[in-house]
C-alpha cells in the first residue's frame, strides 16, 4: 500500500501522534487519558507511518521487534509493585515517594500499560504489513 499521500502525511502525523499520546498518558491521572488511550493513539500513529513503509519501515522506526515492547511493559508493570513488597505491604500498593509532587509508582505502572498496548497492537499489525 505505498501511497505518496500517505507517505508524506505520515511524516507529520507520526510525531504529532507520539507527542499527543505522551501528553494523554501523563495527564491521565487527573484528566481523561491514561496508558490505554495513550498507547492506542501512539499505535495508531505508528501504524499510519508503517503502512506505506512495510514491516522493514516499522522495525527501522522502533529499532526492536514490537514483541520487545510487550515484555518491557509487563516488566514495568511488575516493577511498579516491587517497592510495596520491600515496605512489607501487599504487592502493587502504589507508593508516593515525594510528599509535594504527585509522582508515584502509578506513573511507572501506566507507562507499562502504554508500552504493552503499543507492542500488542503493532505485533498484530506487523503481520499484515507488506515487506
Amino acid at each position: 500500500m505505498s501511497s505518496l499521500i500517505l507517505t508524506t502525511t505520515s511524516r507529520l502525523i507520526l510525531p504529532a501522534a507520539l507527542i499527543f499520546s505522551i501528553y494523554v498518558l501523563l495527564r491521565g491521572h487527573n484528566e481523561p487519558g491514561g496508558g490505554f488511550i495513550g498507547g492506542l493513539i501512539a499505535a495508531a500513529g505508528i501504524a499510519v507511518h508503517a503502512i506505506p513503509r512495510g514491516r522493514t519501515g516499522l522495525i527501522a522506526l522502533l529499532r526492536v521487534w514490537p514483541k520487545a515492547l510487550i515484555g518491557a511493559g509487563m516488566l514495568l508493570g511488575i516493577a511498579a509493585g516491587i517497592p510495596a513488597l520491600l515496605l512489607a505491604e501487599p504487592f502493587l500498593t502504589q507508593q508516593w515517594p515525594f510528599a509535594s509532587l504527585p509522582i508515584g509508582t502509578t506513573l511507572v505502572f501506566d507507562v507499562g500499560v502504554y508500552l504493552v498496548v503499543i507492542g500488542s497492537v503493532l505485533t498484530f499489525l506487523s503481520y499484515y504489513l507488506e515487506n
Binding site: 491521565g28 491521572h29 484528566e31 511488575i78 502509578t106 505502572f109 501506566d110 507499562g112 504493552v116
Partner: peptide, 26 residues
Amino acid sequence: HGRNLVNVILVDFRAIDTLGEIIVLG
C-alpha cells in the same frame, strides 16, 4: 492523589487486575 477516578481505579485501587489484563493482552 489522582482526580481521574477511572484511571485511579485502573492503576491504583485495582492495579493487580490491570496487570493481569495487560499480561493477557500481551
